[in-house]
Amino acid sequence: MLKLSNIHKTFNAETVNEKRVFTGLNLELEDGDFVTIIGGNGAGKSTMLNVIAGAFKPDEGSIEIDGIDVTNMPEHKRAAYIGRVFQDPRMGTASDLWVEENMSIADSRGHRRGLRWAITSKDRERYRELLTQLDLGVENRLTTKMGLLSGGQRQAITLLMAAMKKPKLLLLDEHTAALDPKTAAKVLEITDKVIAENKLTTLMVTHNMRDAIDHGNRLIMMSEGKVVVDVKGEDKKKLTVEQLVNMFSAAGGKELSDKAMLSN
């Protein structure tokens, strides 16, 4: 479903701030894979998602989504295949637009935006049904400005918006990191549900080792722009946090961030 081949990416090349993030990254995902990604700060997790989404172009290498080479496809065109949820709840939605307007923008993803009226009463019913499933009491706030909702509500709605058009790929970039533990757990629960219902191929970056183990069918650990640990299937189910930490050290990875250690 996703194939990254020999990705190279350097920021600020040939300056004192030069940062080589990737020097030949390879990763392949099967259809329906739900991969959790962990790694220290600067390991390249977010950059990888941004390269896949098209926010940055790789210096070298190619990206294929479902057999389509998207390496040179602009971000807005690639969006037809990709749903995204960001770390900052403010980033995934338009704060000054209503909830239903945000949903209608996601609803138009992948087709030409023309002069059709954006929200019909039928659309509104559909949005309400989707929101009801979240069980967060947002189904009656269709005409509330997005910015007035809580971070958890916004992330949950962003998830719905990302999944609405059944993307080939769902990219979650630490989407629960800015939430309090209780809300984070709720959003993760919704995440699992949305992914299972729509059978979405997913990449989920997380700082929390426990979450990385508990969710998905495959876990990868990144360090210095490379995949250093890759655990699938039965092996992943049996994995413990302690084993994971040991694997990380064995792979020569740098210290994990404090946040990841604390969440053990």
Partner: peptide, 26 residues
């Protein structure tokens, strides 16, 4: 116009550029 899909994409561009691109708006 601003109630149509096209008009809505203009409003979202002004409100959140990142999100608009992620939602496939040029």
């Amino acid at each position: 116009f601003f109630g149509t899909e096209l008009g809505m994409s203009l409003r979202s561009t002004g409100n959140n550029l990142e999100m608009s691109r992620a939602q496939g708006i040029n």
